[in-house]
Nucleic acid binder design. Structure first.
Lengths: 195, 195
DNA sequence: ACCTGAACACCGTTCAAGT
DNA sequence: ACCTGAACACCGTTCAAGT
């Protein structure tokens, strides 16, 4: 009878991950299992019955965190309107987002450079995110003069890679320094790269 | 006689920091004092005689790491030539740089969201870096039509903020995914934001 | 004055004993 | 079947004893 057990297990994992996310946002790499135990109301043993180890909890959270962001973007551009890279970024940056999520995302970037399992998850999610942006840019790419020879897909993809890198920059800059709103960043980029 | 002692102390700190940088690049947050001890050839006690604690070593390394990058940029633009934001970024990205430094920098970003002392160092260095870019952009800003009414300094500063955020994005994207060379990123940005 | 390394408190992980 | 929490190995930090 794995039905009940699976649902129970999924709920427990979610309960533990939610608690761990809170503690990570507060303490970062100083987050201890003892604190996660206190936050989720279970025991140390229960955590290790549901996750392989501490790094495994981070991997689970990373997958969920990025998945939500991507879904929200896909939904917002599903009307198929013509949107320039700046338009798509403006749309994405205007979506509601928790500042503490940004902190945890930056912690995951740092961990990724050293934890192969986490790195693989980040790469998968980044590829999904890039593809979502490329889909959103497709109508715009079709009407660009330099893509007349059938290169619209390549242009959309390359532009999506650039957009993703810019989102990363805006995330890092916002989480660390808070110098620029999304508007200011994009307006500034348009002025600086106008040509 | 603090002369000999100070020089000795500075050399010891450098020796320990250099060893810690190697271990951080390999192990990230799993780096242990025992490994740093093995790498630098001293004892645990010697480390705590020269640094307050493990986080203090990271702060010391962070200060040095970013300081070198800024100095190199300042030197490269000291001729005062007119350079657009894309030119300045192209110049900076072409400067030699260790990939392992990028990994450690990303780890520091993650830690910064949770370690106030490290965060303060990152903010100071980022402000220096932004000011260096703004100085490099000043000749360009002077000849922009929209800055005719004396707003050249404000334009240079705002553009420098945008450039720094883009460098952050390129660092993160390169360290994590390696999708784009500096050239491809800048060319793509010019095409995407041409207007 | 500076260094060593055993000692201490704490953390991640396990597993025998409970329900 | 799942949970508990004491027990273990290991890590960051200290400090008495060495030179």
């Amino acid at each position: 009878m794995p039905r009940v057990s699976d649902a129970h297990r999924a709920a427990r994992r979610e309960q533990i991950a939610e608690a761990a996310l809170q503690v990570l946002a507060r303490k970062g790499s100083d987050a201890s299992i003892a604190e996660i135990v206190a936050e989720c109301g279970l025991s140390a043993g229960a955590i290790y019955g549901n996750f392989e180890n501490k790094a495994d909890i981070a991997r689970y959270i990373a997958g969920r965190l990025l998945h939500r962001k991507i879904g929200t973007l896909d939904e917002a551009v599903s009307d198929g309107a013509v949107r320039s890279p700046a338009d798509v970024l403006r749309l994405f940056m205007s979506l509601r987002r928790q500042p503490s999520d940004l902190s945890v995302l930056l912690q995951f970037w740092g961990e990724s450079t050293v934890d192969d399992g986490l790195h693989q998850i980040m790469e998968e999610r980044a590829a999904e995110f890039r593809d979502a942006i490329a889909r959103a840019l497709r109508p715009w790419a079709e009407v660009q003069p330099e893509a007349a020879d059938g290169g619209a897909e390549a242009l959309a993809r390359r532009s999506a890679e650039v957009c993703l890198a810019m989102v990363q920059g805006w995330f890092a800059n916002t989480a660390l320094f808070g110098w620029l709103t999304g508007e200011e960043f994009l307006d500034g980029a348009e002025r600086a790269f106008r040509g």
